[in-house]
Computed example of a mutant assay.
Amino acid sequence: MITLYGVPGWGSAISELMLTLAKIPYTFIDVDGFDQPGPKRELLKARNPLCQVPTLELENGEIMTETAAIALMVLDRCPDLAPPIGRAERQQFQRLLIWLVANVYPTFTYADYPERWAAEAPEQLKENCIEYRKSLYLWLETQLSAQPYALGREITLLDCYIAVMVTWGPRRPWFEVNTPGLVSVADAVSQRGDLQQVLRDNKLI
Protein backbone atom coordinates (compact mmCIF):
# COMPACT_ATOMS: atom_id res chain seq x y z
CA MET A 1 0.00 0.00 0.00
CA ILE A 2 1.11 3.56 -0.69
CA THR A 3 2.12 5.71 2.28
CA LEU A 4 1.40 9.42 1.91
CA TYR A 5 3.25 11.89 4.12
CA GLY A 6 1.35 15.13 4.39
CA VAL A 7 -0.44 17.73 6.47
CA PRO A 8 -4.24 18.14 6.52
CA GLY A 9 -5.28 21.05 4.33
CA TRP A 10 -1.86 21.41 2.67
CA GLY A 11 -0.85 20.38 -0.84
CA SER A 12 -0.98 16.74 0.19
CA ALA A 13 -4.78 17.09 0.20
CA ILE A 14 -4.63 17.29 -3.60
CA SER A 15 -2.83 13.95 -3.76
CA GLU A 16 -5.30 12.41 -1.31
CA LEU A 17 -8.17 13.45 -3.55
CA MET A 18 -6.44 12.06 -6.62
CA LEU A 19 -5.68 8.72 -5.00
CA THR A 20 -9.22 8.46 -3.66
CA LEU A 21 -10.76 9.26 -7.05
CA ALA A 22 -8.63 6.52 -8.59
CA LYS A 23 -9.54 4.11 -5.78
CA ILE A 24 -5.85 3.58 -4.98
CA PRO A 25 -5.44 2.53 -1.32
CA TYR A 26 -3.05 4.57 0.81
CA THR A 27 -2.09 5.24 4.41
CA PHE A 28 -1.78 8.84 5.55
CA ILE A 29 1.04 9.91 7.89
CA ASP A 30 0.55 13.37 9.40
CA VAL A 31 3.84 15.28 9.48
CA ASP A 32 2.41 18.57 10.71
CA GLY A 33 5.31 20.68 11.96
CA PHE A 34 7.75 19.35 9.37
CA ASP A 35 8.77 22.92 8.47
CA GLN A 36 10.37 23.33 11.90
CA PRO A 37 13.17 21.31 13.53
CA GLY A 38 11.85 18.20 15.24
CA PRO A 39 10.91 14.53 14.80
CA LYS A 40 8.29 15.16 12.08
CA ARG A 41 10.88 16.96 9.97
CA GLU A 42 13.39 14.16 10.45
CA LEU A 43 10.75 11.57 9.52
CA LEU A 44 9.96 13.38 6.29
CA LYS A 45 13.57 14.29 5.50
CA ALA A 46 14.57 10.63 5.62
CA ARG A 47 12.29 10.10 2.62
CA ASN A 48 12.50 13.47 0.89
CA PRO A 49 15.63 15.58 1.52
CA LEU A 50 13.71 18.70 0.42
CA CYS A 51 11.18 18.14 3.24
CA GLN A 52 8.12 18.83 1.10
CA VAL A 53 4.60 17.51 1.18
CA PRO A 54 3.21 15.49 -0.37
CA THR A 55 5.79 12.73 -0.32
CA LEU A 56 4.63 9.27 -1.32
CA GLU A 57 6.32 5.98 -0.54
CA LEU A 58 5.05 3.59 -3.19
CA GLU A 59 4.28 -0.10 -2.78
CA ASN A 60 7.75 -1.03 -4.03
CA GLY A 61 9.47 1.38 -1.65
CA GLU A 62 10.21 4.00 -4.31
CA ILE A 63 9.66 7.65 -3.37
CA MET A 64 7.36 9.88 -5.43
CA THR A 65 7.15 13.66 -4.95
CA GLU A 66 5.67 16.64 -6.86
CA THR A 67 1.91 16.69 -7.31
CA ALA A 68 2.09 16.81 -11.11
CA ALA A 69 4.29 13.69 -11.12
CA ILE A 70 1.87 12.04 -8.70
CA ALA A 71 -1.00 12.96 -11.04
CA LEU A 72 0.78 11.26 -13.94
CA MET A 73 1.40 8.18 -11.80
CA VAL A 74 -2.31 8.08 -10.90
CA LEU A 75 -3.25 8.41 -14.58
CA ASP A 76 -1.07 5.41 -15.42
CA ARG A 77 -3.35 3.41 -13.13
CA CYS A 78 -6.62 5.18 -13.88
CA PRO A 79 -6.56 6.82 -17.34
CA ASP A 80 -10.20 7.91 -17.12
CA LEU A 81 -9.25 10.79 -14.80
CA ALA A 82 -7.99 12.86 -17.74
CA PRO A 83 -9.63 13.58 -21.10
CA PRO A 84 -8.97 10.86 -23.70
CA ILE A 85 -5.89 11.05 -25.91
CA GLY A 86 -6.70 12.77 -29.17
CA ARG A 87 -9.25 15.21 -27.80
CA ALA A 88 -8.51 18.93 -27.51
CA GLU A 89 -9.34 18.81 -23.80
CA ARG A 90 -6.38 16.46 -23.33
CA GLN A 91 -3.90 19.15 -24.33
CA GLN A 92 -5.68 21.70 -22.13
CA PHE A 93 -5.52 19.27 -19.20
CA GLN A 94 -1.79 18.76 -19.70
CA ARG A 95 -1.16 22.48 -20.06
CA LEU A 96 -3.10 23.51 -16.96
CA LEU A 97 -1.71 20.70 -14.82
CA ILE A 98 1.83 21.91 -15.38
CA TRP A 99 0.78 25.58 -15.35
CA LEU A 100 -0.64 25.26 -11.84
CA VAL A 101 2.50 23.79 -10.32
CA ALA A 102 4.87 26.00 -12.31
CA ASN A 103 3.08 29.29 -11.68
CA VAL A 104 0.71 29.17 -8.71
CA TYR A 105 2.71 26.92 -6.39
CA PRO A 106 5.77 29.22 -6.21
CA THR A 107 3.62 32.07 -4.92
CA PHE A 108 2.97 30.00 -1.81
CA THR A 109 6.61 29.00 -1.44
CA TYR A 110 7.66 32.65 -1.32
CA ALA A 111 4.63 34.17 0.43
CA ASP A 112 4.43 31.60 3.22
CA TYR A 113 8.08 31.99 4.20
CA PRO A 114 9.05 35.44 2.86
CA GLU A 115 11.79 35.93 5.42
CA ARG A 116 13.76 33.14 3.75
CA TRP A 117 13.91 35.00 0.46
CA ALA A 118 13.72 38.69 1.37
CA ALA A 119 14.95 39.18 4.91
CA GLU A 120 14.94 42.96 4.57
CA ALA A 121 11.41 43.26 3.18
CA PRO A 122 9.46 40.04 3.86
CA GLU A 123 6.03 41.70 4.05
CA GLN A 124 6.50 43.36 0.68
CA LEU A 125 7.45 40.06 -0.93
CA LYS A 126 4.41 38.40 0.66
CA GLU A 127 2.07 41.11 -0.58
CA ASN A 128 3.52 41.02 -4.08
CA CYS A 129 3.18 37.24 -4.28
CA ILE A 130 -0.43 37.31 -3.14
CA GLU A 131 -1.36 39.98 -5.69
CA TYR A 132 0.38 38.04 -8.45
CA ARG A 133 -1.43 34.86 -7.37
CA LYS A 134 -4.75 36.67 -7.72
CA SER A 135 -3.87 37.59 -11.29
CA LEU A 136 -3.10 33.94 -12.02
CA TYR A 137 -6.45 32.78 -10.69
CA LEU A 138 -8.22 35.45 -12.76
CA TRP A 139 -6.52 34.04 -15.87
CA LEU A 140 -7.37 30.46 -14.88
CA GLU A 141 -11.02 31.47 -14.64
CA THR A 142 -10.96 32.32 -18.35
CA GLN A 143 -9.71 28.83 -19.23
CA LEU A 144 -12.62 26.87 -17.79
CA SER A 145 -14.85 24.93 -20.15
CA ALA A 146 -18.50 23.99 -19.60
CA GLN A 147 -19.22 23.12 -15.99
CA PRO A 148 -19.61 21.39 -13.62
CA TYR A 149 -15.90 20.56 -13.82
CA ALA A 150 -12.96 22.52 -15.19
CA LEU A 151 -13.00 20.79 -18.57
CA GLY A 152 -16.66 19.90 -18.85
CA ARG A 153 -18.99 17.19 -17.59
CA GLU A 154 -16.38 14.69 -16.39
CA ILE A 155 -14.15 15.14 -13.36
CA THR A 156 -10.40 15.08 -13.94
CA LEU A 157 -7.40 15.33 -11.66
CA LEU A 158 -7.27 19.03 -12.50
CA ASP A 159 -10.42 19.52 -10.43
CA CYS A 160 -8.62 18.18 -7.36
CA TYR A 161 -6.24 21.12 -7.55
CA ILE A 162 -9.03 23.65 -7.86
CA ALA A 163 -11.07 22.16 -5.01
CA VAL A 164 -8.16 22.55 -2.60
CA MET A 165 -6.75 25.84 -3.87
CA VAL A 166 -10.07 27.66 -3.47
CA THR A 167 -9.71 27.09 0.29
CA TRP A 168 -6.24 28.70 0.36
CA GLY A 169 -5.33 32.37 0.18
CA PRO A 170 -6.80 34.75 -0.91
CA ARG A 171 -9.62 32.64 0.62
CA ARG A 172 -13.06 31.67 -0.59
CA PRO A 173 -14.79 35.09 -0.26
CA TRP A 174 -12.32 36.53 -2.79
CA PHE A 175 -12.89 33.59 -5.14
CA GLU A 176 -16.67 33.94 -4.87
CA VAL A 177 -16.49 37.55 -6.01
CA ASN A 178 -13.76 37.26 -8.61
CA THR A 179 -13.71 33.68 -9.89
CA PRO A 180 -17.19 32.15 -9.51
CA GLY A 181 -16.31 29.48 -12.05
CA LEU A 182 -13.52 28.12 -9.86
CA VAL A 183 -15.91 28.11 -6.90
CA SER A 184 -18.47 26.16 -8.93
CA VAL A 185 -15.85 23.55 -9.78
CA ALA A 186 -14.81 23.26 -6.12
CA ASP A 187 -18.45 22.87 -5.09
CA ALA A 188 -19.01 20.13 -7.66
CA VAL A 189 -16.03 18.24 -6.28
CA SER A 190 -17.21 18.68 -2.69
CA GLN A 191 -20.59 17.19 -3.57
CA ARG A 192 -19.10 13.88 -4.62
CA GLY A 193 -19.82 11.27 -1.99
CA ASP A 194 -16.61 9.38 -2.69
CA LEU A 195 -14.51 12.43 -1.80
CA GLN A 196 -16.34 13.89 1.17
CA GLN A 197 -14.44 11.98 3.85
CA VAL A 198 -11.08 13.14 2.45
CA LEU A 199 -12.39 16.70 2.24
CA ARG A 200 -13.58 16.56 5.85
CA ASP A 201 -10.30 15.04 7.05
CA ASN A 202 -8.51 17.98 5.43
CA LYS A 203 -11.00 20.53 6.82
CA LEU A 204 -11.95 21.57 3.30
CA ILE A 205 -15.70 21.26 3.87
Rank of each mutant, 00 (worst) to 15 (best):
I2E: 08
T3Y: 08
L4H: 09
V7P: 07
G9L: 11
G11Q: 09
G11S: 11
A13F: 00
A13C: 13
I14V: 09
E16M: 03
L17I: 06
L17N: 06
T20I: 10
L21G: 01
K23R: 14
I24T: 15
I24M: 15
T27V: 13
V31F: 07
V31I: 10
F34L: 10
D35S: 12
D35E: 11
Q36S: 02
G38Q: 13
L43V: 10
K45E: 04
A46W: 04
P49L: 15
P49S: 14
P49N: 14
L50Y: 10
L50A: 13
C51Y: 07
Q52E: 02
N60H: 07
I63R: 05
M64S: 04
T65C: 10
A69P: 10
I70W: 01
D76T: 15
R77C: 11
C78F: 04
A82S: 12
P83M: 14
P83Q: 14
P84C: 08
G86P: 06
R87N: 15
Q92M: 01
Q92N: 01
Q94H: 01
L96H: 11
L97N: 02
I98V: 10
L100K: 14
V101P: 13
V101S: 12
V101E: 12
P106C: 15
P106H: 15
F108N: 03
Y110Q: 02
P114Q: 02
E115G: 07
R116N: 13
W117Y: 14
A118I: 04
E120L: 15
P122T: 03
E123L: 05
Q124L: 11
E127Y: 08
C129Q: 15
I130W: 08
R133D: 04
S135N: 04
S135V: 04
S135Q: 01
L136D: 04
L136P: 07
Y137I: 06
L138Y: 12
W139G: 07
E141K: 14
L144R: 14
A146W: 02
P148A: 03
G152E: 12
G152V: 12
E154P: 05
E154R: 00
I155D: 01
I155R: 00
T156M: 00
T156F: 02
T156Q: 05
L157W: 06
L158R: 09
L158T: 06
D159W: 00
D159A: 00
Y161M: 03
Y161K: 03
I162P: 03
M165C: 13
M165A: 14
M165E: 10
P170W: 08
R172C: 11
V177Y: 05
G181S: 08
V185K: 06
S190Q: 03
G193N: 06
G193M: 03
D194H: 01
L199D: 03
R200Y: 01
N202A: 07
